[in-house]
Design a protein around this nucleic acid. Structure first.
Lengths: 197, 197
DNA sequence: AGTATTAGGAACTGATCAGTCCAAAACACA
DNA sequence: TGTGTTTTGGACTGATCAGTTCCTAATACT
């Protein structure tokens, strides 16, 4: 018995995510969001509370749209060798630069760098999401012949190491390095972590 | 034949660097800078041009104050084993958290993430500075018994790999991870890169 | 002392910031 | 066709943004 919402919330959230991802939290104005989301001011504040609320919702949307598929890929037994899965995931980092000239990096990493230190709620969300990434690497590592005999703790540590390497690669891209340099570094990482196929 | 400057430029730059480092470019207002630098608006604009000019100068100051000493340390033969120098450098990343609860991370990494993609001049500066970091790791690697027999290219690649691991560790700190987790990851990195002493 | 030149600082610019308010609009139900 | 409830979007708020202007202060040189 009320007026129904005229916009699709998930759709609007996707657009908001893209804006925050591209311009960062501080770099994004409410007007940028309104334009991208194609909704009015009142609707935004009624649906998401305030800027930070919308940002957190967008971050969760990133988890659903980008992190979760990554995890599924890292645990996808259709590619039997986990090392190959890891290699393919790392190569997406450079692929998006080459195909779309997309240097926005990882929205999660970006947020960890520029917002997590200033807000405990965002900090906690970042740690949770990074924890999931680590578990993704862990799952892939368990499916490698070379490491399946390692203990659980050793695998966890290696997974954490891979995750910070992944984050570092994302920074390298944002700093502006050429795709071939990034690719070379990916190979180095794979070699050092004993993941060359 | 003119009025002399009343403030010390390097000193003011140090303070500006601290503010930008702590709050980021977008998060920093001119008023924040004026308060920290203890100078007036006119002086700031006369001496540094505009906000971006001041930021670039502060970034250079970071290079001089923080990057260069790091490079010297990585190449300091008073510690004969390069692997130990690398270990000690990585441990400073967690040490600043434990002693000062300083989670500002690396000003260079922060800038690469949130400003480099939006400004070619900053992008270039970031790449230059990261290149220096890589050369620092390279110098240390050359002083390790285990790797001195590696070819130059292999050493360069390993140095680049260490640099992105370093960047990843910085992100981990900013995300809010506990010092013991970071320390554990440092050990993992050292192990994977065959740098355990 | 007088003059040229630069530094300093406060008042001011228009633009933009996040957020609020409110009247009109659109629906469900009676 | 009312009536109650919620959405909508534009007008508006005061605060802050980066940057300019202009007058005074402080020096060096003649």
């Amino acid at each position: 018995m009320a007026r129904p919402r005229e916009f699709d919330e998930a759709d609007a959230l996707d657009r908001a995510m893209q804006v925050f991802w591209t311009k960062g939290y501080e770099g994004t104005g409410i007007s940028d969001l309104l334009e991208a989301m194609q909704i009015g001011r009142g609707s935004l504040y009624k649906a998401f509370g305030d800027k930070k609320g919308l940002f957190l919702a967008a971050l969760k949307q990133y988890e659903k749209n980008c992190i979760e598929p990554g995890l599924q890929f890292l645990n996808d037994r259709n590619i039997p060798d986990g090392a190959q899965r890891i290699q393919m995931l790392l190569e997406t980092v450079v692929a998006v630069v080459e195909s779309d000239n997309d240097r926005r990096g990882c929205f999660l990493c970006n947020t960890a760098v520029d917002q997590a230190p200033h807000d405990p709620e965002i900090s906690k969300t970042c740690q949770d999401m990074m924890g999931k990434m680590v578990q993704g690497f862990y799952g892939a590592l368990k499916d490698t012949t070379r490491h399946k005999n390692l203990g659980e703790e050793a695998l966890q540590k290696k997974a954490m190491g891979l995750n910070i390497a992944y984050n570092g690669l994302r920074i390298m891209v944002k700093a502006g390095y050429a795709p071939e340099d990034v690719r070379k570094t990916i190979n180095t990482i794979l070699a050092e972590f004993d993941l060359l196929t």
